[in-house]
Design a protein around this nucleic acid. Structure first.
Length: 576
RNA sequence: GGGAUACUAGCUCAAUGGAUAGAGUAGCUGACUUCGAAUCAGUUGGUUAAAGGUUCGAAUCCUUUGUAUCUCACCA
């Protein structure tokens, strides 16, 4: 679609040149903003900053600029109010442009090409083997997937990596526990719960009998050394756990390109360690090796334990080096909770100290904590909400509502799934990532107001209109040929058209800020705009041209909502 | 004790340093014989945690204080 900001900044730059203002210290494009109120125009340019250089009152400058911009055919009207130049875009050109894109190229009018030829790796979800996949994992999983979709939409080649927690002494413990108290059938029937119960039992017993811990360490060493029996058990635990995780991924329709987890990097650590050593970054301290980061106002990073074994950060250094070599990424994203802020700050700093300029391309996309009304999540204390349960419950209550409404008669289960799971995802992506939140069943299962079902309902309503309308009129609306769309230049129709236009900008902003909620909020606005339009105006009217023109806006809106939801990983059913 | 992040309407949240701080929800009032009421319209609700400062202009930037959460060498 036409980028009006570019056109406007060009026009203003020309005017400023005429006025002999040096534009060296100001970026006109960055100064253009959207007025707080639609009535004040489509774009605005504040003139305060120019006052000093010109030694004139900003109001006067605004008046002069407004005067000179009048002649531009981009605008229908230019006004100065206070010290702002308020610009109104020429309507018909705008309407034509938005409809041409959103109706004729409805499937991909929000797509971009800036990412062509560039690779982005994104590390998200990353659950621990043999541990429950609970509500705490939903954020990284859903946010990560949305960011993947958003960047893919901009043309990037995005590699999704599920960095499984599949390594460490915990697996020594698990193997020991399984050998002592385990049962194959139980594990196969309910892998996570069963394995977790062994793990818990191990901890209880180990308190009485510390020898168990030694045994676990020895067993893990066997695993590291590739002893057949240990490796086979470990592989089996991993496979069974993944099967269970995949149930959730299937429900969410999330896929990964790589499941290279912690174990994958175990043989890549020695080289990374040697490199740190060679580059003189390691320091001996209390029998451990550390990287001193005091200079950068950070705690020291322990790289090897006193017994010589490695740590989380050691593996992550090896991981970062491997990913650069393997994928030659343009950017490397880590969607991990803000609890690990320090860890990633240390990691990226160490990579930088190793002399890699691409350290700046590594981004920690952090997000706030999830807690329960009873307190923080704790597997041991039984404070867990399984993600699978949340999704199932959302689908169930959606189904009840569907049956109650009685609109849908076929594929009820499929629709219930799309709406119920969509509601959970939407809820997750509605707020800024950084906020902590308390999981609340009532909120997840409430479908009124700014929710996923609200947006989907609006989409279904738009589809319903298109289905009801006369076939020939729909054809005309879809083709736009010979259609007088000037009536869309007023009131709620024009407001809605602007919202559809602005979706592209919202997507761009969501990408720049790694903040899917920008899109979530924007499609809510589109839905609100549509519902207002729907209530204020009769769409299927007696007048064929008027109906066709309005329907073209309905089609544009429908496409905008569908595309927006798709970027969040949410379906847009035609009936619900 | 050090560090990080947050604090906006009763509640949940918006607001690239810009115009009168906006939505949803809850409460109240209205709109289904009418294109789908999972909807819409109206209304009540604010010293943006507090105090200073920078600026033509601050919820936003800086300083101090308070509160909450996270984190701080051998867990991941």
């Amino acid at each position: 679609m036409i980028d009006y900001k570019v056109q406007i900044s060009e026009a203003i730059n020309n005017v400023l040149m005429e006025m002999e203002v040096s534009t060296e210290n100001i970026n006109v494009a960055d100064m253009i903003e959207r007025p707080s109120d639609d009535k004040l125009g489509d774009y605005a340019f504040p003139c305060f900053k120019l006052a000093k250089e010109l030694r004139k009152a900003p109001q006067q400058i605004a008046a002069e600029i407004a005067e000179k911009l009048q002649s531009s055919d981009v605008f229908e009207k230019v006004e100065n109010v206070n010290a702002y130049v308020n610009m109104y875009i020429a309507k018909q050109g705008f309407i034509d442009d938005v409809l041409k894109n959103a109706v004729l190229h409805g499937d991909d009018f929000t797509k971009g090409t800036e990412g062509e030829g560039k690779v982005i790796t994104i590390d998200f979800s990353s659950p621990n083997i043999a541990k429950p996949f609970h509500i705490g994992h939903i954020r990284t999983t859903v946010i990560g997937n949305a960011i993947y979709l958003i960047y893919k939409n901009l043309g990037y080649n995005v590699v999704r990596i599920n960095h499984l927690g599949d390594y460490g002494t915990q697996f020594g413990k698990m193997i020991v526990a399984y050998r002592k108290w385990g049962n194959k059938e139980d594990v196969e029937r309910e892998p996570i719960k069963t394995l977790l119960s062994y793990y818990t039992k191990f901890h209880e017993e180990a308190e009485k009998d510390p020898q168990l811990d030694d045994e676990a360490r020895k067993t893990f060493l066997n695993l590291e050394n590739g002893e057949k029996e240990e490796v086979e058990l470990w592989q089996w635990f991993r496979d069974e756990s993944l099967k269970e995780f995949n149930k959730v991924y299937d429900m969410l329709e999330i896929d990964f390109d790589s499941y290279a987890g912690e174990s994958f990097y175990s043989d890549k650590m020695p080289a990374a360690l040697k490199e740190l050593e060679d580059k003189g970054l390691l320091k001996d301290s209390q029998n451990t090796k550390i990287v001193d980061l005091e200079e950068y106002n950070m705690a020291p990073a322990v790289i090897t334990k006193s017994d010589g074994s490695s740590l989380y950060i050691t593996r992550d250094i090896a991981t970062a080096l491997y990913r650069k070599k393997e994928y030659n990424f343009h950017k490397s994203l880590y969607v991990v909770a803000s609890q690990q802020d320090l860890h990633f700050a240390q990691l990226f700093k160490i990579v930088e100290l190793m002399g890699y300029e691409w350290a700046k391309d590594c981004v920690h996309i952090q997000f706030g904590m999830v807690s329960l009304t009873e307190g923080t999540l704790s597997t041991r204390k039984g404070r867990v909400v399984f993600l699978e349960d949340v999704l199932n419950k959302a689908v169930e209550s959606t189904k009840e509502i569907i049956l109650e409404k009685g609109v849908v008669s076929e594929n009820i289960d499929q629709v219930a799934k799309e709406v119920g799971i969509g509601a959970v995802i939407f809820n997750e992506l509605a707020h800024n990532r950084i906020k902590d939140y308390v999981f609340d069943w009532d909120k997840v299962l409430n479908f009124d107001g700014e929710t996923g079902p609200y947006v989907q309902y609006t989409h279904a309503r738009a589809c319903s209109l298109i289905n009801r309308a006369d076939e020939n009129i729909v054809k005309k609306a879809n083709g736009l040929e010979g259609l007088d769309t000037s009536i869309l230049g007023e009131g709620s129709a024009y407001d809605l058209l602007k919202l559809v236009y602005n979706l592209e900008g919202a997507i761009k902003e969501a990408a720049d800020r790694y903040e899917p909620s920008v899109i979530t909020r924007h499609i809510v606005k589109i839905a609100q705009g549509f519902n207002r339009f729907y209530n204020e105006e009769r769409i299927l009217s007696e007048d064929a041209n008027e109906t066709a023109a309005k329907l073209s806006l309905v089609i544009a809106t429908k496409n905008a909502i569908r595309n927006g939801l798709a970027l969040l990983g949410i379906k847009a059913p035609e009936r619900m």
